[in-house]
Design a protein around this nucleic acid. Structure first.
Lengths: 151, 151
DNA sequence: CGGGATCCACGAGGATACTG
DNA sequence: CAGTATCCTCGTGGATCCCG
C-alpha cells in the first residue's frame, strides 16, 4: 500500500474481484486507456451516456417505456413538472438519435404520437435495472446523506 | 385509464410485450402512478438517478471501479479534462452519499486515497451494463444523428 | 393541440490565485 | 499534494407569446 505501486495494484485488484467480476474491471480499464490514446475522448459511450442521463430524457424514455404510445400532452402530464419547451427539445433529440418515433396525424386539431423504437426499447431494459438498483439502495444513500448533513 | 383510451392502452401493452418484459412495464407504470399520488415526486429513485447521472460523477465512479484505489491527481489524470474544483465537489458528494470512501494519510506532502465502498461497487456493476449497451448501440445512434443533421 | 421563437434568470462549472 | 476561495462566463431551462 506504500510506495511500491506494482504490488499495491495487484492487491487492489484482488480486493475488487471479491465484489466485481474481473472481466468488468478489465473492460473499464480498456475504456479509459482508449480514452487516453485518443486524447480525452471517452469514445462514443461517454457522449451517449451524457445524452441519456439528462433528467427529462430519462423520464421521457421511462414514460414511453411504461405506457407505449403517448400524445404530447399525455407525456407532459405523466412527467408532471416538465415545461413544454424542454419536453419538445428532449423529444426532438430522442428522435434524432433514433430512440423515439414521432407520428404526425394530419388532422384538425393536430395529433402527434410518440413511441419508442426498438432501439429505445432495448435501452429501457437497461435503465430498468438501474432503477431497480436505486430502489433497493436509495434508502441507504439517503441515510448517509442525512448523516453527513449533521457534520 | 382516462376517457376512451382503455382499448388503445391494452393494444399498446400487447405490442410492447413483444420486446419488453411485462413485469418491467408494470413496474414503470407503478413508479409514475406513485409519482402522481405524491404530487411530482418521482420517489427517491429520481433523485438518485439525477445525482449519479452527472457527467463527472459517472466518470469518477467508473475510474474508481476500474482501478480500485486512486489518489486525487491519479483520478484527475484518468478522467482527463475535469477541473480540480469539479472533481473535488464530485468526490465530496459521492462521499456524502456513501458511495466513495476517502482516506487521508497525515503525511507531508499530504496523501489522500479514494475508493468505492461496497455500495459504490454494486452500482458499478449496473453502470457497466449501461456502458455495454452504449458500446453496442452507439454506432447506430451516431448514424441516426448524422442522418438527421442533413435534414 | 402541438408546437416555434424569443427573452432572460440563474446556477453549474471553468480559470486563477492562494494555503495547510 | 490536495485542496479552498473568489470571480466570472456561458449554457440550461423556465416563462411568455404567437402560429398552423
Amino acid at each position: 500500500m506504500q510506495e511500491g505501486t506494482a504490488m499495491s495494484v495487484s492487491n487492489t485488484e484482488v480486493t475488487i474481484m471479491e465484489n466485481t467480476a474481473f472481466v468488468e474491471v478489465k473492460k473499464i480499464q480498456e475504456i479509459f486507456e482508449l480514452a487516453n490514446a485518443t486524447k480525452n475522448q471517452l469514445c462514443p459511450v461517454r457522449d451517449i451516456i451524457a445524452r441519456i442521463s439528462d433528467k427529462w430524457t430519462l423520464l421521457s424514455i421511462y414514460a414511453l417505456g411504461g405506457y407505449g404510445t403517448l400524445r404530447f400532452n399525455e407525456l407532459k402530464y405523466k412527467i408532471g413538472d416538465v415545461s413544454q419547451r424542454m419536453l419538445t427539445v428532449t423529444l426532438r433529440n430522442l428522435e434524432a438519435d433514433g430512440l423515439v418515433k414521432r407520428t404526425i396525424y394530419p388532422e384538425v386539431p393536430p395529433r402527434v404520437e410518440y413511441q419508442l423504437t426498438a432501439l429505445g426499447r432495448s435501452l429501457v431494459n437497461q435503465l430498468t435495472l438501474l432503477t431497480d438498483w436505486a430502489t433497493v439502495n436509495g434508502e441507504e444513500i439517503i441515510k448517509y446523506r442525512k448523516l453527513n448533513l449533521n457534520k
